[in-house]
């Protein structure tokens, strides 16, 4: 197990290195000068030059990059060019909000998809299966922004049950906080449920037709145990991969959902800082997203190594 973790951690470092290159240089290719944005309308060339020097923008790109990496290694993510807040504290403030949505959305998706997927696989090609597949096709096909707006239209505009968006602190206003969570969690949960359902159904159907399931039946194992033990246990590793991957994608930016519901998480922060050319913040946020994906990937691999004896630890 230890060599596997070590190898995965090395991979993580490599991936992060490539991400820093991509993040740094692609944002430098974007049009728009953060110095100009900071100074407002019609600044004097001297003022621009002064602020560019202060932000380090007058140095060669490579030197800027090395400077940034050097700071990163020391744990310094830089500061926002808008208000001078440290990037790290900005991220620390936003991540829990995204985490909350991602965890609840993932739980909701599993809550819907696991029973639905198992039922559809057990009663394959029946009306139950067909109904669930049709519903999942809907969830799979609609874009998040459309579903978000639809939910908002129904629950905030037609029946004034829930807020259309915004974030209230759990400590100060717990009821409003919970009400604000419902629509974004529904949006994320429904769309993810469709994906998990489709995987689970086809994964289980694949396993049900394996020779070893026939062996289990030939032993006299009851149908409930055939599904609940033999099929489930073999479907689990694939499910873990799908769920950890989906979860890492949620963590690394529910850009659209957060934007629509004005939920001030990581995705929302990314959009805001891209619009204001706040390089340091964008870089930090994207880098963190990449770390989330790689780490969740590692977590999924580790869980699967425990679940499937065929996965070797070396």
């Amino acid at each position: 197990m230890v060599p596997m973790i070590a190898r995965k951690l090395l991979e993580l470092v490599l991936v992060i290195f490539f991400v820093t290159l991509i993040v740094f240089f692609t944002f430098r290719l974007l049009p728009g000068d953060p110095a100009l944005l900071k100074l407002g309308q019609d600044p004097t060339p001297e003022a621009v030059a002064a602020i560019r020097a202060e932000m380090g923008l007058d140095r060669p790109l490579l030197s800027q990059y090395l400077h940034w990496i050097g700071d990163l290694v020391r744990g310094d993510f830089g500061a926002s060019s808008l208000d001078g807040k440290p990037v790290l504290s900005l991220l620390a403030e936003k991540v829990p909000k995204t985490l909350e949505l991602a965890v609840l959305g993932t739980l909701l998706s599993l809550f819907i998809a696991i029973p639905a997927g198992v039922l559809a696989a057990v009663y394959r090609y029946s009306w139950v299966d067909r109904l669930m597949r049709s519903v999942s096709l809907f969830g799979f096909s609609v874009p998040a922004y459309w579903l978000a707006i639809l939910l908002m239209l129904i629950f905030a505009y037609k029946v004034h049950l829930l807020p259309a968006g915004g974030y209230a602190s759990l400590a100060e206003n717990p009821w409003l906080h919970l009400k604000g969570l419902v629509l974004p969690v529904l949006t994320v949960g429904i769309i993810n449920a469709a994906q998990v359902f489709r995987f689970l159904r086809s994964g289980m159907l694949d396993i049900v037709n394996q020779d070893y399931i026939r062996t289990a039946r030939a032993k006299g194992v009851s149908e409930a145990l055939v599904i609940g033990k033999h099929v489930a246990r073999n479907t689990l590793p694939g499910l873990v991969t799908v769920v950890t991957l989906n979860f890492s994608l949620l963590l690394s930016g529910m850009v659209i959902t957060e934007q629509i519901f004005a939920w001030p998480g990581l995705g929302w922060l990314m959009i805001q800082s891209i619009l204001s050319r706040d390089y340091e913040v964008v870089q930090g946020a994207v880098l963190l997203s990449a770390v989330f994906i790689v780490v969740m990937n590692l977590v999924g691999d580790l869980i699967n190594a425990m679940l499937d004896p065929r996965i070797k630890y070396n």
């Binding site: 020779d211 062996t215 149908e223 246990r233 073999n234």
Partner: peptide, 28 residues
């Protein structure tokens, strides 16, 4: 019924299949 049949399968009737590579459950 399947339930009644399960009393005989594995007890009075047993079966060995062609493919030993795929007939055993890989995770147990």
């Amino acid at each position: 019924s399947a339930k009644q049949m399960n009393r005989y399968r594995g007890k009075d009737l047993a079966m060995i299949f062609q493919e030993p590579m795929t007939s055993l459950n890989p995770v147990f």
